[in-house]
Design a protein around this nucleic acid. Structure first.
Length: 497
RNA sequence: GCUCCCAUCGUCUAGGGGUCUAGGACACCGCCCUCUCACGGCGGAGACAGGGGUUCGAAUCCCCUUGGGAGUACCA
């Protein structure tokens, strides 16, 4: 194996869905790996027995696939450095903990959670740092046996080195030094036998030959602890790159409180993977002063850790939406159709078996709506009137347009013309409206808007001739009749319109 | 509390001593296109957190203040 080969990893814990912050971390790792012909490892950190679920693991894998962040080693893929679930690597952690125990760099601690709480409380009261006081460091063999006999389940603590400083040489932040006296003897194996995060990452990253640890800045402060473990075990320390956090609009760490943060949710709402990837890449990274649109290949080519920003970035939904709109517009009609057909079927707009006539209709609808949507799921409300009989009138539009003087007359003169025009096509429809315009001596808009409201229920839609042509003569005329009746009934009810 | 990180338009950012009367993108505003909306085009408003240094010269280097973020668990 090439010893210089870049190996990076994304190591989510399956305690929820993949959120955008995690996805961005995964993306940066992926880009870095691809750019360097390296290996992208996916490892599941499921050592928290109570919070980890298989459903979460699956959701994360699905989200990764949707984004196209294909991993080279990991779940469903295997690899030479497995297993890739921490829960299946327990012997490994135990083995290395034993090593530390044997070399005197770790010890068993029998303190109960209550005792630890007390230690912390006292420390705070006395204005000392709330650190573990190391009281179990020098237990005698006899004392340990006694405690075990009492049924106490020990944890294993790392015997930290309190002297000097630990340097984290970060690819993004430069050299960061920590005073070792900030450390305490942290737990590496819990009483249930599971490793803690700070221990498991080190063992796994070392054993999996990870060369670059690219992860969120929230891990920067933990890095000194990890470095001490690397050194105590004689492992070589990988390169670190801590990328900035993603914040919500209120500048606190992005969370569910801020709305949609799960990648799966964005997928459901109709965000294209290309747009998500592009947007996420720009959250904390930039190329130059002008380019904002990047294909994935372009990102692989141009991404550099050196250009990753140091400051946290606020997640801007508006920009994501704009970008998604750009990518939707770039789709060919075939691609758009392929992406959206399942949605139309899910909404019950078209049946599972689509006739060729219906295919044509859907494509026509997509063609006129493509440049008007930012998210695929918007299609539902802006296209239902092409597929369903029942119309939902927007009250404001009805008042504003149909309540206008002359609306009834205009619709009434148009109706017979529409009923009798020979070919119900866009080209033949336009003259009818022009004619009516002259007849009534009104602006074209005054002729068109009542029709628009009558057939779509709203005063906003694609070009009216396109809409009518797709809708067809029968539906158009029926809706105009219905609308006329509606206006009449309202007038009789003396409610005005 | 302690430790660490960070600090350019509302947001993402370009900028790494002079070319900055600070550039781009989203959002916002106006105009054009126009049957409404959208797309597109054109234009506008909008920032170097504050204070000290260093220097002939600072958005760029150093220090302090302030502000924000993170860590400090038998969570990851």
């Amino acid at each position: 194996m090439n010893m210089n080969q870049v190996r990076v990893r994304f190591a989510p814990s399956p305690t929820g869905y993949l959120h955008v912050g995690g996805a961005r971390t995964a993306l940066f790792n992926y880009l870095y790996a691809k750019q360097n012909q390296g290996v992208f490892v996916l490892r599941i950190e499921d050592t928290d027995l109570v919070r980890s679920t298989d459903a979460s693991t699956q959701a994360i894998l699905d989200a990764m696939k949707y984004l196209g962040l294909d991993w080279d080693e990991g779940p469903e893929k295997g690899g030479d450095y497995g297993p890739y679930f921490q829960s299946q690597r327990l012997e490994l952690y135990q083995q290395y903990a034993d090593k530390l125990l044997a070399s005197g760099r770790a010890y068993q601690c029998f303190c109960t959670p209550e005792e630890l709480d007390q230690i912390r409380q006292e420390a705070v009261e006395q204005k000392r740092d709330p650190k573990y006081d190391g009281r179990c460091r020098n237990l005698t063999e006899a004392q340990r046996q006694e405690l075990i006999r009492q049924g106490r389940k020990p944890v294993v603590r790392f015997k930290a080195d309190y002297d000097g400083t630990t340097l984290v040489d970060d690819l993004i932040r430069g050299k960061v030094t920590f005073d070792n006296n900030q450390l305490d003897d942290f737990v590496i194996i819990k009483s249930d036998g599971m490793p803690t995060y700070n221990f498991a990452v080190v063992i796994d990253d070392a054993l999996m030959a990870i060369t670059h640890v690219i992860r969120g800045e929230d891990h920067l402060s933990n890095t000194p602890k990890q470095i001490q473990i690397y050194e105590a075990l004689g492992f070589s320390v990988p390169q670190f790159a801590h990328i900035p956090m993603i914040l919500g609009p209120d500048r606190t760490r992005l969370s569910k409180r801020h709305g949609a943060t799960s990648v799966g949710q964005f997928q459901e709402e109709g965000y294209l993977a290309e747009a998500m990837v592009n947007y996420l890449a720009l959250l904390g990274w930039s190329f130059d002063d002008s380019q904002t649109l990047f294909s994935k290949n372009e990102l692989i080519e141009k991404f550099t850790l050196a250009k990753v920003s140091k400051n946290p970035a606020v997640f801007d939904l508006a920009k994501l939406q704009w970008m998604n709109g750009v990518y939707i517009r770039e789709l060919s009609l075939d691609e758009l159709y392929e992406q959206t057909l399942p949605l139309f079927q899910g909404w019950g707009f078209v049946p599972t078996e689509v006739s060729s006539e219906l295919v044509g209709k859907v494509r026509s609808v997509l063609k006129i709506l493509q440049e008007r949507i930012k998210v695929l799921s918007e299609l539902r409300e802006v296209s239902y009137y092409f597929f369903q009989d029942e119309l939902h009138y927007d009250e404001k539009a009805v008042r504003k347009v149909l309540g206008k003087e002359g609306a009834v007359e205009i619709l009434s003169t148009l109706l017979p013309e529409l009923l009798s025009v020979t070919d119900y096509t866009q080209e033949n429809l336009e003259p009818i409206f022009r004619k009516a315009q002259e007849q009534h001596q009104r602006k074209l808009a005054d002729i068109i808007q009542p029709v628009r409201v009558a057939v779509t229920g709203t005063n906003v839609s694609p070009g009216i001739y396109d809409v009518l042509a797709i809708l067809g003569r029968a539906r158009t005329c029926q809706r105009i009749k219905d609308t006329l009746a509606l206006i009449k009934s309202r007038q009789e009810g003396s409610l005005g319109v």
